[in-house]
Design a protein around this nucleic acid. Structure first.
Lengths: 295, 295
DNA sequence: ACAGAACAGCGGATCACATAAACAGTTTCT
DNA sequence: AGAAACTGTTTATGTGATCCGCTGTTCTGT
């Protein structure tokens, strides 16, 4: 396709044919050729990424500035640019580093559904452990080695079903979407609950979530804003269905730590849907099946 | 819950009991009391939001700075702060404004599935028309009047099923997630395709997407990066399933403008899942049903 | 060995941005 | 009239990404 700029600098000491890769990808896969001259690099992409991840873990993604990362390593901001093209690239590298730190769930033989459920849950839990993951400007494109391992695992689970590559990719993509979506909702819910508790107990706004009363957290009404808005602002003519729903609403028993089952709700639905697709596709009656292409 | 700071400034000329709302919500709902003294405001929240939306439409969300928005209205940056608490609040207002501009699909009687499908598709199309929507720091919490109308509509569709409010909310939430997830994937895919075409045809990187050859766009392989990575970097032992999948892969007929059906793929699965839930829940056999609470 | 190229990390500077503080003019209430 | 409540502006502060040129280091080829 693209034949411009051959740039024939071959790796001198071995069959290193990975020289003309897009730089992001090269760095993701650790395939950047080591410099052959000049001072020995004091830093490394790995150390930088680790420092950035640590910073994000401690203070959130907003705290991850080039200056702060460099400072935490004892260098100046500009030093980082010798290893990383831009901050955006650093963020991409961080995303893959996160995938590395997550332990891949085992591959249960013969039960793709259980496998995919574990696969998805593990990732959602990963997101909950690292909420800043959601703030990364994630593109699907640059594929790092560790995220790719997750994808491979999902493919392995779906392999026995004999679907098309396109179909498999779509399903995996759907679940990956679901991870992010559900992760966002859960993180958001927790954050809102924490906020509520803090303001109700008069704690300072920066009280860490660990220090909050667990019972109070679970009891916090996640629909508080909803109720406020509906009761005070939304007139019944414009919002008839919501109004009706609210009047017949009873606040639910509020099980402590309902997050587990909340995650299950959406996930079960998605998995049911996938199961329906698989059934239609493999055990399919003719007519309603078809290879997912409507032209 | 919170009984502090009564702040008894009542609206003087009417039963305006909406004075002590959180300011974001007041502004979302246009319930900020007009000033009773001082010069007449030259600007308005509406004009500011509209200007911001226009800017985002034209140049993306990154171009929306307080300075640029103000400039486009002929005022200084700081003027905006008389109407809006912060930039974040402006973004929240923009989100609701987008919802306003989307036309709500009609409510088909007696077919909740068709209704929800249209509901979701309309929103995904909205996202495609305004990709910057995905860049907004969207929280579920601050509910604006126009987004709420969408939610009401979904509730109306699900109402005949007699589900719990919680269940309905979960389902609607799931679909809302799906809108964002699918929107992201679609936007990403298009962007990547545009990039590919641009680089293949040697066009400058800032060529607007409108000017690209439609046929070339459709033909662009969305998995180019995948293929590159898998063929050059990923060794078969570490990525066995993907490697196998890639070898048996045939590039698919590449129907022009396949986006419609691509959206349908994931959406059908989700809707199938919802249908399964509804069937289990309403026509449910005892034992496997239960009100979605596993405790 | 040695010159010079290639490279590391640094310091300073630029530019854009969000937002705070103080100000000057305007309108309305008392 | 005069204070109070506003409006939009000017000025300033702090932060962040990134550019550029500098100093010193370490290979490579001779």
């Amino acid at each position: 396709m693209s034949t411009s700029d051959p740039a024939d600098r071959r790796g001198p000491d071995g069959p290193d044919r990975a020289a003309d890769l897009p730089p992001v990808i090269a760095r993701l896969w650790g395939r950047s050729a080591p410099p052959r001259r000049g001072p020995k690099p004091a830093l490394s992409v790995e150390r930088i990424v680790r420092a950035a991840v640590d910073l994000a873990d401690a203070e959130g993604l907003a705290a991850v500035s080039m200056a702060r990362v460099a400072e935490s390593l004892g260098y100046s901001s500009m030093a980082l640019y010798r290893y990383v093209e831009s901050k955006d690239e650093l963020l991409v590298l961080m995303a893959d580093a996160v995938a590395e730190s997550l332990t891949l769930p085992p591959l249960p033989e013969g039960d793709w559904r259980a496998g995919l459920e574990a696969w998805t849950r593990a990732q959602i839990e990963g997101v909950l452990a690292r909420p800043w993951y959601l703030d990364l400007p994630l593109t699907t494109a640059p594929v790092g080695p560790h995220r790719l391992r997750w994808i491979d695992r999902a493919f392995a689970m779906l392999e026995p079903l004999g679907l098309t590559m396109d179909e498999t990719l779509q399903i995996v993509g759907l679940l990956a979407q679901h991870v992010l979506g559900e992760g966002r909702v859960q993180v958001e819910t927790r954050r809102a609950a924490a906020e509520t508790v803090r303001s109700a107990q008069g704690l300072p706004g920066d009280t860490p979530e660990r220090d909050l009363d667990e019972r109070a957290l679970a009891a916090a009404n996640p629909y508080a804003d909803y109720e406020l808005v509906l009761s005070r602002l939304a007139d019944p003519e414009t919002y008839p269905a919501l109004t009706r729903a609210l009047t017949t609403w009873e606040p639910a028993p509020a099980a402590p730590d309902d997050w587990e089952s909340d995650v299950g709700f959406g996930l079960d639905i998605v998995l049911d849907g996938i199961e329906a697709f698989v059934a239609r596709r493999t055990g399919g009656r003719p007519g309603s099946a078809g290879p997912a292409r409507t032209a």
